[in-house]
Amino acid sequence: MQFWIIQSLNSLALGGVLFLLASGFSLIFGLMRLANLAHGALFMVGAYIGANLLRKYAFIDLWMAALLSGLMVAAAGGLLERLVLRRLATNPLGQVLVTLGVSFIIADACLMVWGGDPIPVPTPSYLRRPLFVVGFAFPAYRVVVVGIAIATAIGLYLLLERTRLGAMIRAGVDDMDMARAVGIPVSKLFTAVFCLGAGIAGAAGVLAGPILSAYPGLDADMLPLALIVVILGGIGSLVGAFVGSFIIGFIYTFGTALVPDLAYVILFLPMIFIIAYSPQGLFGRMAT
């Protein structure tokens, strides 16, 4: 019983982390039709920046580190979009290849700067004590991560549905030419969305730090999970990313705990079923 409850909570926590990662990917894909393969690398670089901020400056706590790291990664993402991806606007394949190249550069730069040993991200002291609910001890931080993911989901939903920026994004997703024709500044919108997606990934890296820590290969571990989440949930769908994240969170956590050798195979079984049934994923539009 203990096992199932603890693993369920771990699944939820991983699902939360995955949502933070996949929501940005999905947001960018939905508007820009760009599969940002550097997303895992942005997540990793965020984790490294956060870990180092915490290590060097005593006055910075985890939340501030996440915020700062998110802002830095957002700025870097903005530069990438403005300086490189923009020039390839008519070449979606070229864009993907560039983001792939950038992911290699970032990953190797991280290895060069921060070395090959994992850097732990400490859990805030006040969240280290376990939470007791009906006699079971829960690691408090994991509960908080789930809370942050849900809050982010609600925040993104409100942003998309209730704000002017959101209305412009939705218009762009529905019909880019029409959006341009009615005077929506599509070019600025692209940069804003790319920054937002990158920033969430960067902050997510820090927030996931106490669970995953920062290590070389974190990007390669996370990217496929994010891809499977969005393929499963439907590329470009926020709801799909949310549902997909928790499905994958559960499958991956229980898979790793029960059949560690084959966790990866179990991970992709649901993907096969969903794609066979509906190539658009659970909540997606057609991905071409």
Binding site: A35, I231, F268
Partner: peptide
């Protein structure tokens, strides 16, 4: 899928094998 969907699925499948 075709296009980017195809690219992402082939990538995901190969990562499964790698893992």
């Amino acid at each position: 899928a075709t296009g980017l969907g195809f690219l992402m699925i082939t990538l995901a499948l190969s990562q499964v094998l790698w893992g």
